[in-house]
Amino acid sequence: MPHDLNLAVLVSIGQHPKSGRARRAEQDARAVELGLKLVGERLELLHAGEAQQEVLRSYLGMGLKEMTLLEQPSAGDAVPALGRYLAQKRPDIVLTGVRAESGEASGMTPYLLGEALGWPVVTRIADIIKVENGEAEVLQALPRGQRRALKVRLPFVASVDLAAETPRQSAYGPGRRARIDNASVDAQQDQLRSQWQEAPARKRPKRLKVAKAKTAADRFKAATAKSQASGGQVLQNESAQEQAQALFKLLVEEGVLR
């Protein structure tokens, strides 16, 4: 690992699925774990949100002495503040979770940041093997435990999948003593969000799965084997117009668009 590799990890406030209580978010904690593996204590921990959230200390308890807080009102939009801060700091790699456990949880943060910074976005990574000559070897997590090796130029934004290394235990003492520094940023109200209405989620209808497996061996294969691309179509040489047309047709067929 180059000694001057700069890495920023964005962490959010997680939410326990059973109790609804704030906690260290599972994917974000994995991002911190990966960051610690790559650069140790030099990693910059970032949170954009309200001040005085004790649960942030559970990230610090993983072995960091300080973190930066970009203070936002509760209905603030984290992306512009993060974008400006990161553009100024220019780390080599920005790690996030795939999707927050609370709040909007749209999973858009990495994409919007990538757009704002003009950096590539790598989704759902499981590991960063090494960084050399301005290039990172990244393992992307695919379904069923498969991995895809990618080479990505620095700088980039990556979202960390649950398949990454499980995070280390958070220690109370160091977490308690660590510093949370306020970086001054202009808060920005989330205009769109303020107009939204929230309602409890409805269960999404599941696509019916036709069980074809007859034997245990078949089931095992179905659960582990690489999914066979069947009926798919690779559009490589067609014009953008044709590609878009094909996508549109598929979405209508699947009932996503009506």
Binding site: H16, S19, R21, R24, M62, R168, Q169, A171, Y172, P174
Partner: peptide, 23 residues
């Protein structure tokens, strides 16, 4: 070991996380 080092073996960390999040 637990509060300074974060080194409770085996299921220790998980148990403690659960206690914190769900009592």
């Amino acid at each position: 070991l637990t509060m300074e080092k974060g080194n409770t073996p085996n299921k220790g960390a998980e148990t403690l996380d659960n206690l914190i999040a769900t009592d």
